[in-house]
């Protein structure tokens, strides 16, 4: 078992990590790079709390061997958080009380980011389907759906609705 070096782009910056074979992206982020916004709710791809964007596509970091992201672009919640203040999606989650215990929040926000890049104005059914892989056990889905709609307004204007 020889460690190897894997290079990829993380939140816009090139990184090289020395890893043992098949270390998950989740463990590289959380344990090696100490970027813990990406959570570890199940490590089975079931809860969505570790969702990151790989080349813009939401993926479960717990199911992704780090070798698979060699040369790819990975975006985590740390990567969308501005130095000061909040990203509009974060503002929308904060203002709409779409956070309770906070453990599902990073995954929810990452999926929202990917969704709004594809569909600037998703309807409720589209939002619910997009978020269906992200479990919130505090049962705050209604507020989360509202937050995504509000985030769309914040990012793309409210479409003339006053």
């Amino acid at each position: 078992m020889k460690p190897k070096i894997v290079s990829f782009t993380l939140n816009g910056r090139p990184v090289d990590v020395m890893v043992r074979p098949m270390t998950t992206l989740q463990n590289v982020l959380r344990r090696q790079l100490e970027l813990t916004a990406t959570k570890a709710g199940c490590r089975q791809g079931s809860c969505g709390s570790c969702t990151v964007l790989v080349n813009g596509e939401p993926m479960a970091a717990c199911l992704l061997p780090i070798e698979d992201v060699e040369g790819q672009e990975v975006l985590t919640l740390e990567g969308i958080t501005p130095l000061h203040g909040l990203h509009p999606i974060q503002e929308a989650f904060f203002e709409n009380f779409a956070v309770q215990c906070g453990y599902c929040t990073p995954g929810m926000i990452m999926v929202t980011k990917a969704l709004l890049e594809r569909e600037p104005r998703p309807d409720e059914a589209t939002i619910r389907e997009a978020l269906s892989g992200n479990l919130c056990r505090c049962t705050g889905y209604q507020a989360i759906v509202q937050a995504v709609t509000d985030a769309a307004d914040r990012l793309h204007g409210n479409g003339g609705v006053s």
């Binding site: 791809g45 939401p58 993926m59 479960a60 389907e129 269906s132 892989g133």
Partner: peptide, 9 residues
């Protein structure tokens, strides 16, 4: 089948 994240994989 599954959800968006998993379908991407």
């Amino acid at each position: 089948t599954a959800a968006w994240t998993i379908r991407n994989m």
